[in-house]
Amino acid sequence: MSGFLIYRAITIFYNGQGLEMMKYIFTVMVGISLVFGLAAGNISEVSNAALSECSQAVELMLKLIGPMAFWGGMMRVADKAGITDFIAKLFRAPLKFLFKGIDANGKAFKAVTMNITANLLGLGNAATPLGIQAVKELSEEESAGGVATDNIIMLVVLNTASIQLIPTTVAAMRLAHGSSSPLDVMPAILISSAASVAAGIASVKCFAAGRNVLSRSKRTITDESH
């Protein structure tokens, strides 16, 4: 299974913490720029970039941190006012369609709705622990024992597709670069997000349906042989 091998390579690199892989990316990127700089005769440009780009990172963070902190503050108010719970309730029905065969009043489904709501509102910090909790609860409720069930796969795919309603970081960066209307890309982002999420959901459902058909035909064959 090439997909499994690629996944193993990724988990070995990331080591569950998400930082292991970066040491290779860091070194390889610097190495590539040295080799290409030598080959193309851009060495002075490359070394200038090494010395000057770091201050641009600080400038970028200065431009971003205001809008990010503003939305972080607003979302905490929304959370405390019960708006997150309200939105989570609105998404119960569509999420019931996506997550089949789990208790709609159970801990797992609650963690799933809270994780998806945090993603929709762009609460990245809150979404990750809720998502991990949701995967653990799903695994327990379906007694998966280390196997990703269709519901677990669905949750992870929804988390790897972006479903944020207001793209605050993108808007802040566009504004910093002098966009006349930083939020005018929002409808296009929603279209593209919707297409991406729909493709992810369709793929998960197709794999699940395919496995169902396979296991059913296997059962029929063994039934007939008896």
Partner: peptide, 24 residues
């Protein structure tokens, strides 16, 4: 995301997660 979620929840057999995520 895949590495963090599955690492924390100790999921070993990932089946079509990567294929479906990359499709998206």
């Amino acid at each position: 995301t895949i590495a963090v979620y599955f690492g924390a929840a100790k999921i070993k057999k990932t089946r079509n997660t990567l294929v479906s995520s990359l499709t998206a």
